[in-house]
Design a protein around this nucleic acid. Structure first.
Lengths: 211, 211, 211, 211
DNA sequence: GATGAATGAGATTTCATTCAT
DNA sequence: TATGAATGAAATCTCATTCAT
């Protein structure tokens, strides 16, 4: 699920990879096109041979990746597994995206998803597709009785995705410790929080029993 | 909890209010200092009389507001109420912030909190203070037994705040319908999702009982 | 009829004057905005404080001047003098424009009037106004019988203006000797050519008489 | 007198023809070398195989054509016909040039002759050759008594050529109606204006007679 | 406090030209 | 011949900030 970095030859690929590094390092705005060209060891003008603008590079980076993620979510949603497992698979996929290509994921999260004003607005629909798919998982979970109906699927999808993004943001900006263990723990924790809730079950079960 | 808009006289206040409007409309980057001055009906140079830089205006806007929020959270955390009620009070406060001053909240969310690379990094610590306070609420909930211990407080705080921010973002960018009813429903829904979880209780309670 | 060069103080005027010099020296395209700023001894950005673009500077230069010329032509046309005298006055005014401010006239002729593709198209209407006024002079000359009716006024106006412009171009590019004497001789020569024609009068008169 | 358009095979010719179309459409400056290659259905690099530079293409276009015109003028000048007929033949040739290949003539007029600053200067001598030849026609007309001596031949040549160019410019930029009739009328009108003058002959003849 | 003219660094983008195949 | 990827210089325009009044 993680594309290999170009070693040379495919200049377009090299520029894209260099852009990830450059954007991740300095941020999209502070990053000059010449930074990308330098990082790619390529002439300035070649960037404009392959891409119409700096924006288009970011768009390409985002869309290529996001489409892979969307395909994965769609496929996951279609499987015959418990909805909780589906959500776990999705959380795991997103976190693994970050684990295996943190720079790219940082760029996507920070420069596109969390910069809605600048770029996100251009991709609002594409981003919302993920919410819709996740919402459908929740809805079908409610239909089969594994999820309760108090919370609207759309809302649950936002909360679920919001929690993941926040955690990723925590890693990206060093507010949360990173590491393979942390990554795996986070996958479960997110699902446990969103699905299981913070409330203590035995306490609640007890009160239920007492009814 | 919502400060009145300046009607005139206090030029500093007028500039700040104009900045909210201008930043909300065009985004921080696309907004020129002259836009702020125009919006405030104030001479260009006066902006620099009151503020060292364009950044400082945004910082001021953010900090003034955030400190109010932090104070509220701290006060809420100190009260002798169930942790779930505390979380509800916090979610309600944030959402009401948005309800009563959507432009300012949009600026804070979009330009500061969700633009970590550019401005957020400068305020990471300030932002983290909220996470810490919320985390403490969760921790004390776990200590008293109302919250289970599977999820780390820090993590729960992120998920909680992430869900709220995501919902606000949904409103800000028109992906979610707005309205007084929606606002109130969201408050409960967030708490219900994070505390109660998506899992169906009766189902779970039943399985617990059967043990 | 010739505006004084700014000596200092009025920066807008200084920029305009510097632009004339710079455009005349290097041509509009080859002239950088920094050349203008340097020539005006003014900071780069100030040029953009007063003018929206490099184009606007040229437009301003042209329009300011052309409107003066149009006013003069209109006033001349309205006078009660023989049409031939009117044409002489107009040719004289244009040539004197060049005599007293050759750089500005060069810019107008070479960069606007003779660059129809680039700038002229934007000013086609303004330029055509002159043709119309001159055409009206010819038409009224035909009406009173001093001009013959074989040639359409519109056409005569083009020929008249074309002859003047060509002569100016000859001076501008050093294909024709310049000098006060040459200027005055040119005024008469143009009118003599267009009005009197090249044909020898005595010869023609003789043939007419013989009829 | 009009060369056939290349249909294929001769790539150099195809490029030249494509350049005419491209230059006429967008103007020399706005036209990219790639536009020419596209229009010619030829690989980008091939343009540089046949021409050293974009300038050279325009130069070639101009010189090829201008030399034909110069040859025609020289030949016409050498004939034993009245000078007025010679001028008519020249005006007719130029106008027919435009009639049969308006795009090419537009390019030559607009991009070379009327862009003296940019390209014309390189061709000043070549252009002046035409003036000289026309001037010689006028001079010989004066020598044989058909033209009066008040106007210098050089000057008359400028006026004559200026009138033609202005009329062509009128057609090129849609300020004058085009059409076979208009073209033929223009030939006579130009000669009539320049040779016969605008003054009414009978009026003048009468005044002459009265002497 | 108030004004707005003045400054100048900096980044994107374009495109003619070269070159390896 | 033919191709089109690769190069990189150059120039416009923006706008935050300063400063003189």
């Amino acid at each position: 699920m993680v594309p290999p970095r170009a070693s040379g030859g495919d200049k377009r690929r090299m520029i894209l990879d260099a852009a990830v590094v450059a954007f991740a390092r300095r941020g999209f705005h502070a990053c000059r096109v010449s930074d990308i060209a330098d990082e790619a060891n390529v002439a300035y003008g070649l960037v404009y041979h392959y891409f119409r603008s700096k924006d288009e590079i970011l768009d390409t980076l985002f869309l290529d990746r996001w489409n892979v993620l969307l395909a994965f979510i769609a496929q996951t949603a279609a499987e015959r597994t418990p909805p909780r497992d589906k959500l776990h698979a999705i959380a795991a996929a997103i976190i693994d995206f970050y684990r295996y290509d943190p720079a790219l994921m940082k760029v996507i999260i920070v420069e596109v998803m969390r910069s809605a004003n600048t770029f996100g607005l251009r991709h609002t629909d594409k981003i919302a597709e993920a919410y819709v798919l996740i919402g459908e998982i929740v809805a079908s979970g409610q239909a089969t009785g594994s999820f309760k109906r108090e919370v609207s699927p759309r809302f649950a999808a936002l909360a679920f995705y919001g929690a993941i993004e926040q955690v990723l943001t925590g890693w990206i900006f060093g507010m949360l410790p990173e590491g393979d263990e942390e990554f795996d723990r986070a996958k479960s924790a997110i699902v446990e929080t969103i699905c299981g809730g913070l409330d203590d079950m035995s306490y609640r079960a007890a009160s239920v029993r007492s009814v």
